[in-house]
Amino acid sequence: MNRKKLFFGIFIAAALIVLYTPILLIIVFAFSESGTISLSSFEFGFANFRELFTDTRILTAIFNTLFIATVAAFLATVIGTMASVGMLKMKRRAQSGLMALNLTPLINATIVTSFSLVLMFATLGMLSMGYIRLILAHTLVALPIVMIIVLPKLRNMDNSLFDAAMDLGAKPSQALLKVVIPQLMPALIGAFLVGFTISVDEFIITNFNNSGIDTIPTLVYARFGFRVQGVMRALSALVFLAIFVALVIVNARMSRKKRSASAG
């Protein structure tokens, strides 16, 4: 039994090492001022980071990425939460129909979604609306996940509260804003953050529907082949570190919450 555990332990460790090697490599070489990646030409320095923070195109791309992700995640959270509340009491058939609609963009090949969105924006004459196009597209990417996160939480919630608020004379919007939303807040924040992350990461749809607005992924794509990879390494290192730190914090908080919940 112990030998079995050792075997799987080694296999898993090896897989993790292979998976993380490129990421560690890029973080290490972000601090090398030499253009090429090889151990013999490593020259320690911060030139890549200096270049990163003086490159206005990169800074604009970072702003665009964060701006689009914030608006899209917000829209997706609002639309998704409203839909979840509305769906909850529907007949099972209507619910599964709406859920199938919701899952379509998630299941569909991203490249097909991208292409069909291009056709749609062309038909509606919206090809030149840079930010609006990207915000709509990113909302579409984030929405299914928002619903997947919010709907189960809503199902587990005490449903009579909404009806109680209505019976006491609240308008549906009041019942939603004052009763349901406050209770749902943790799930909504979670949904917003996941939607935000997906939007920041989204490349294919952005690349197809991009009319002159750089996001970090499209900029990385545009510069992939160039020799200026030093700057991209610095950018990657920063993004990796930011995401790892964020995830570690989120996980530490979640496990602490879990522990205190199980203790109490």
Partner: peptide, 26 residues
């Protein structure tokens, strides 16, 4: 009350019609 409640789905349906159903039919 649940009659009103169903209206909350409207933005979602409109959004999905424009962003999923319409593009796929195109």
């Amino acid at each position: 009350t649940s009659g009103y409640r169903h209206l909350f789905v409207a933005p979602f349906i409109i959004f999905m019609l424009v962003m999923v159903v319409f593009p796929l039919s195109l």
